[in-house]
Write a protein that binds this DNA or RNA. Structure first.
Lengths: 205, 205
DNA sequence: ATAAATTAAGAACGAACGTTCGAATCGCTC
DNA sequence: GAGCGATTCGAACGTTCGTTCTTAATTTAT
């Protein structure tokens, strides 16, 4: 990630940052040029000079949030871990990472409203989740190969379950501030899933 | 649910139905008076005659979808079931019910974008999920009382986990049509959670 | 049959949106 | 310090939005 050198890059980053704050705070529908003027100390001349149009800003906001979320998820799992550890890290670290960057998470949740109307956004979202599911499937297969997991588990369904738990937990925390303890939820989820995919002998004392 | 008798009630239902279709198909931002004119065979005179303003339509759409979803969830669990059956029904029937009425589900997902800006919508959503969590906690307590479940389980976290699974699964199905098999996901989820809250003796052959 | 009330129609309005554009200002080079 | 490109400014434009209002059509009651 190179430091912004030119004025252009600096301004663009500044505008995208303001746009992200607006979207995370008030929703995507509140992202207007006037709102950007208020959030920054600029007039709209600056904004329209550095971006061709508003759609370019919207896409930059989405790309920025997607990059953050991507970085907060899979990259936290170390390859030195065992399969069971990886599954737990996949859950715990991902939820933690998403909630450490609530702004990016809220931005992505805001973009959900555009999925029905915008196939491009739908595909970016689908790719994100599919990548996460694919990684989960790999870990499951790895666990089966090492003999840690039972081979019968339907890895497609379990992968979707893991992703669903992450999505559902983050959504509840983001939309109902204070009502949910994500660490406790993730702990239960990890226990339940590992107890389900691991050989019974390992979990039954 | 009384049949619409007066012309007024009939027209209102007609307009709300069209509004729901628009929101479910294209998102909440696409719900404009002009779009309603197109979806119905009316002019905007009719619409503004039967509704004070657009906000009233929006709230009616939300209330309508909330009622549908509410009906599709808790009401499907029979009180004659055992605790374990209830947990499974809570998962399976709820996901099924939500996906049987994709329109209502998509409407609710569309309204998520308004949660950051609209405390009223945020609370309606929070209430829906909290009621679902409370019911799950009751079932868990019932299972503990009958000796089916281990008493140690943190029911708050497990309840949030159940709701999260429902949300995450429905979201994946709605946003990635065809990629996810909800029945398989729910089956894995039910197996994992029941294996986790049930006494080990019951699940270890 | 006629008067009154209800409902439908569609033109017109102000407000807010994204965009465009010419003038003003800054920063650098020669 | 004059000249020039890069940047900032803010007014103005056309469009679309939700709302309002007048007129016409239809239904209901007497």
């Amino acid at each position: 990630m190179p430091e912004p050198e030119t004025v252009r890059d600096f301004r663009r980053a500044q505008i995208i940052g303001a746009a992200r704050r607006i979207v995370a705070r008030d929703g995507l529908h509140a992202l207007t040029v006037s709102a950007l003027e208020g959030e920054l100390a600029f007039t709209r001349g600056v904004i329209t000079y550095h971006f061709r149009n508003k759609e370019e800003i919207v896409q930059a906001v989405l790309a920025s949030a997607l990059a953050d979320v991507e970085h907060a998820t899979v990259s936290r799992v170390r390859s030195s871990m065992g399969a069971a550890e990886k599954i737990e890290a996949l859950l715990r670290s991902t939820v933690r990472g998403l909630l450490d960057n609530v702004e990016a998470s809220m931005v992505l949740l805001s973009f959900w409203g555009r999925i029905p109307a915008d196939p491009e956004i739908a595909e970016l979202n689908a790719r994100l989740y599919e990548r996460y599911r694919a990684y989960t499937r790999d870990v499951l297969a790895e666990g089966v190969a090492t003999g840690d997991f039972v081979p019968a588990a339907a890895s497609d369904a379990v992968a979707a379950l893991v992703v669903g738990i992450v999505i559902g937990t983050v959504a509840q925390v983001c939309f109902e501030a204070g009502c949910i303890d994500p660490d406790a939820v993730v702990a239960e989820a990890a226990g339940a899933i590992l107890g389900h995919v691991r050989h019974r002998a390992a979990s039954c004392a």
